[in-house]
Simulated scan of single mutants.
Amino acid sequence: MDVTLGVGQSSESEMVYRLGLQWDFQRSWWETSTGRLTGYWDTAYSYWQGDQTSSNHSLSLSPVFVYEFAGERFRPYIEAGIGVAAFADTEIEDRDLGSSFQFEDRLGLGVRFGADQDLGLRVIHYSNAGLKNPNDGVEVYSLYYRMGF
C-alpha cells in the first residue's frame, strides 16, 4: 500500500488537498529495455477549499495505468486513468456539477526515486459525462508526493 499527498488548484481557483491510498496491480505488461506498463488502484479523499462558496469534499476510486521508463536511480513515468467520484455538494464556486456522482479522468507525469517514492504533476477532470444537466465540470492541477509502505 502507498500513500499520496497532493496539493493543487482547481480551474475555479479553489485550493484542493488530496490524501490517497494506492494498491499496485501486481502485474506488468510489455516489459522491454525501454520500460513497462503497470498500474494501481487509487482511492482518495479531497478537500476543496472554497473562496466564494462553502468548501466541498469528495471521495474517489480509479484504476490508473502507468508507463514507467527504465532507469536505475530515477524512473520517469506517465499515467492515465478514469474512475468515479462522489461529491458532498454539487456546486464548486461558480460551477454546477449537476450531480454528486462524477467521473474522474486523469493524466499525469512523474519520477520514481529511492525506495518507493514518487514526485509528480497531475491534471484531473471531473464531469458527469452529460448524465445530468447542468454538467459544468471542473479541473484540478496538482503536485503530489507518493510514498510506499
Score class of each variant (00 low, 15 high):
H125A: 05
A44P: 03
G120K: 00
D2G: 13
S33D: 14
I124M: 11
Y145S: 05
I124K: 11
T53A: 12
E104D: 14
V140K: 03
N56H: 03
V3K: 07
M15A: 15
E93K: 03
T34N: 13
D136E: 10
G35H: 07
T4K: 12
S33H: 10
G114Y: 06
L109F: 14
L97K: 09
G98V: 07
A85V: 02
Y77N: 08
N135T: 04
D136H: 10
D2T: 13
A70R: 06
I78R: 09
Y145D: 06
R112T: 13
D105N: 08
E68Q: 14
Y17W: 12
P76H: 04
G20C: 09
P134V: 04
L107Y: 09
V140M: 00
S55P: 02
T34Q: 14
T43Y: 01
A80C: 05
L97F: 09
V3W: 13
Y145P: 05
V7M: 08
W48I: 01
V3Q: 09
R106T: 12
W23L: 13
N56E: 06
W29T: 01
L109A: 15
L119S: 01
Q49G: 05
W30M: 13
W29L: 01
V111C: 09
N135V: 06
G137W: 09
R75D: 04
Q22W: 05
Q52E: 14
T4D: 11
D105Y: 00
E139Q: 09
F25G: 00
Y47V: 02
Y17F: 14
T43S: 10
D94F: 11
G110F: 07
F25E: 04
L107V: 09
V140C: 01
E104L: 13
V7H: 00
I124W: 08
W30F: 15
M15R: 15
A115M: 14
L5G: 14
M147L: 15
Y45K: 00
V66C: 03
L143N: 00
R95H: 14
R73C: 07
Y126K: 06
E104S: 15
I92G: 03
D94C: 06
N133M: 11
